[in-house]
Computed example of a mutant assay.
Amino acid sequence: MDNAGIRIRALLKEKNMTQKQLAKLTGVTESALSHYVKGDRIPSGDALANIACALSTTANYILGKEDVLDFSNVKRILARNKNEMTNQEKAELIDLLFGKD
């Protein structure tokens, strides 16, 4: 399994998401996604962008070009996903940022 496959698998587990759910969200076939996760294939640019967006990360992270998301990446991810966040999730994020438990 290549780096992209390992990271996609880890992100799926972290998000408690199945490959089938990710395929549906991204428009990638389940078969193609399975090949990406196994490391048999690398996703095309469009597929990679859709997968990264659905997993709230970056293509660079999935490809192993960056090991940690720096603040500019986090900011971009939050901006991209803010409309999908519930008020509860937004409140939890604010609490996390300001140190509330």
Results as ranks from 00 to 15, higher is better:
69 L>R: 05
70 D>A: 07
72 S>G: 00
29 T>C: 05
22 L>W: 03
44 S>L: 05
29 T>W: 03
92 E>D: 13
47 A>K: 14
47 A>F: 02
2 D>L: 06
34 S>P: 03
44 S>T: 14
74 V>K: 13
40 D>G: 03
81 N>A: 12
86 T>L: 02
13 K>E: 13
89 E>A: 14
95 D>K: 15
76 R>M: 13
33 L>H: 06
84 E>M: 08
83 N>C: 05
10 A>C: 08
71 F>V: 11
3 N>P: 00
77 I>C: 06
40 D>T: 13
63 L>C: 12
20 K>N: 10
58 T>H: 00
7 R>H: 07
24 K>A: 15
29 T>R: 01
24 K>M: 07
76 R>A: 15
77 I>L: 10
35 H>Y: 14
42 I>M: 14
81 N>R: 15
77 I>G: 06
9 R>G: 00
23 A>R: 03
87 N>A: 11
73 N>K: 12
25 L>F: 06
54 A>I: 05
75 K>N: 11
38 K>C: 09
67 D>R: 08
73 N>W: 02
36 Y>M: 04
83 N>T: 06
6 I>H: 12
2 D>C: 05
66 E>R: 04
93 L>K: 04
55 L>A: 06
48 L>T: 03
70 D>C: 08
91 A>Q: 15
55 L>K: 04
95 D>S: 13
57 T>P: 03
25 L>A: 09
91 A>D: 13
51 I>E: 05
22 L>A: 03
63 L>M: 15
25 L>I: 01
8 I>F: 07
11 L>E: 11
36 Y>Q: 04
52 A>F: 04
8 I>Y: 05
90 K>P: 02
98 F>H: 08
5 G>T: 02
36 Y>A: 03
5 G>I: 01
42 I>F: 13
42 I>D: 12
44 S>A: 12
93 L>F: 13
55 L>T: 04
85 M>K: 04
17 M>V: 07
12 L>A: 04
47 A>I: 03
94 I>Y: 12
13 K>V: 12
36 Y>C: 02
4 A>H: 11
64 G>R: 02
93 L>V: 12
57 T>N: 09
15 K>D: 04
4 A>Y: 09
79 A>N: 15
18 T>K: 06
37 V>T: 11
28 V>F: 02
34 S>T: 14
24 K>L: 07
39 G>M: 07
47 A>T: 09
37 V>I: 15
34 S>A: 12
21 Q>A: 14
